[in-house]
Structure formats: structure tokens, C-alpha cells
């Protein structure tokens, strides 16, 4: 349905906004490398089922997400490494990995490798933006492109929420994916303060600065 498609394209747009910013400004300042690595982990553990994905739509998006994320990490770790400031990117990701790992082991749908890794990836994605938001907090401001990147990334999962509501009412056989829904709501909540600042500042064409 439209919400889901818009969400997936918003996700794709966020990746291309980020790529554009890094290549255009030849710098990855203001971007958390830790968050990008977490997203790489999210895609790898989420798309282990890539080889037998039945829908071409999903297959293409999975390949796009994995390949573009690999490229972003290459750019940040090799090409523009000098513009990477590790002592601004100090969020303790082990807490996030522990959080996702614990929930994946406690409440997977089934105790199979695929399901446990999938649950891990869903929970990790819900908190993977934290190092990025934390870095934003520390620098106090961000380039417009970085703000657009975070906004598009936040919108992707936010749009999945109406998608789930729509499916609940329109597909009688649809069973609610409680893990994805819970984590998706948590993820969207984590963006809420950012969205507020983004909406009030950037929509007025002002620079993105924290109050």
C-alpha cells in the first residue's frame, strides 16, 4: 500500500541524500560512523533471506540498501576518512547491541537463526539512530543535508505505522507483526524531538540548530 511504498522510497531517499552530501561536500563531518555501521549490521542480519526473496520489489530494495550502505561505509572509512572525527562519535554502541541482542533472544517469534537474527535487526534498527542524534546533540547544529538525511530516515519507519494500521483493517489474513510494530513505534518516538526541531527550523529555511 501507498504508506509502505512511500516509506521505502523515503528510506532510499535518505541513503541518496547522505551519499550526495558526502560526495558533494567531500566530507562526512556531522555523520556518525557508528550509526552507519549499525545500519550495515541491521541490513545484514535483516536480509539473510535475500537469496530466496520472492517479491522482486523487496529483492531490489534489499540489494540497494546493502550495496549503498557498504559504499557509504567505504567512503567514511577510506575515501573521506580524514573528515571523520571519532571523538565526536562517542555513543556506547555496546548498550544498543546488548539491548537488541537481549530482546532477540528473549522474544523471537521462533528460535531459528533467521528469526532470532531478524528480531535482533528490528530492535537494533529502532535504536541505531541514537549515535547520530547524540552527535547532533554534541555539535549543537547540523548541515541542512544532514538534517534532511535524518528526517527522511525517520519518515521511513514513521510511514510504516499507517501501513500497519491500513493492513490491519484491509487484510483479514494479516497477522500483526508485534515485534516490528513495537520497535517501529519506539524508533519513531526517538525521532520525535528531532522532527519537531526539523519542522520548526528547516521548514522555515533556517539553519538546523538545537535550541
Amino acid at each position: 500500500n501507498i504508506f509502505r511504498v512511500l516509506g521505502d522510497f523515503s528510506h532510499l531517499a535518505s541513503i541518496f541524500i547522505l551519499l550526495h552530501k558526502i560526495q558533494q561536500l567531500k566530507s562526512c563531518s556531522g555523520i556518525s560512523f557508528k550509526s552507519q555501521v549499525l545500519y550495515m549490521l541491521v541490513y545484514i542480519t535483516r536480509y539473510l533471506d535475500l537469496p530466496w526473496t520472492s517479491s522482486p520489489y523487496n529483492f531490489i530494495f534489499k540489494v540497494l540498501f546493502i550495496s549503498s550502505e557498504l559504499y557509504i561505509i567505504y567512503l567514511m572509512a577510506r575515501a573521506y576518512k580524514p573528515t571523520n572525527d571519532p571523538n565526536l562519535d562517542t555513543f556506547h554502541v555496546e548498550f544498543l547491541l546488548g539491548f537488541a541482542g537481549l530482546l532477540a533472544l528473549l522474544f523471537p517469534y521462533k528460535y531459528t537463526i533467521l528469526e532470532v537474527f531478524w528480531a535482533f535487526s528490528i530492535w537494533l534498527e529502532s535504536v541505531a539512530i541514537l549515535p547520530q542524534l547524540f552527535m547532533l546533540q554534541r555539535t549543537g547544529e547540523a548541515e541542512a543535508m544532514t538534517a534532511h538525511y535524518i528526517a527522511a530516515l525517520g519518515m521511513y519507519r514513521a510511514l510504516y505505522i499507517p501501513n500497519w494500521i491500513y493492513r490491519y483493517f484491509s487484510e483479514p489474513t494479516h497477522k500483526v507483526d508485534t515485534i516490528a510494530v513495537t520497535a517501529g513505534i519506539l524508533q519513531t518516538i526517538l525521532y520525535s524531538d528531532f522532527f519537531w526541531i526539523y519542522y520548526t527550523k528547516v521548514m522555515r529555511g533556517e539553519k538546523f540548530k538545537l535550541p
Binding site: 533471506d49 510504516y160 516490528a180
Partner: peptide, 10 residues
């Protein structure tokens, strides 16, 4: 019955 297990969302 298609295995519902297959994740149909990204």
C-alpha cells in the same frame, strides 16, 4: 498455503 513466515516487509 504460502509460508507466512517469509517476511513480506523490509
Amino acid at each position: 498455503r504460502r509460508e507466512k513466515d517469509e517476511k513480506d516487509e523490509l
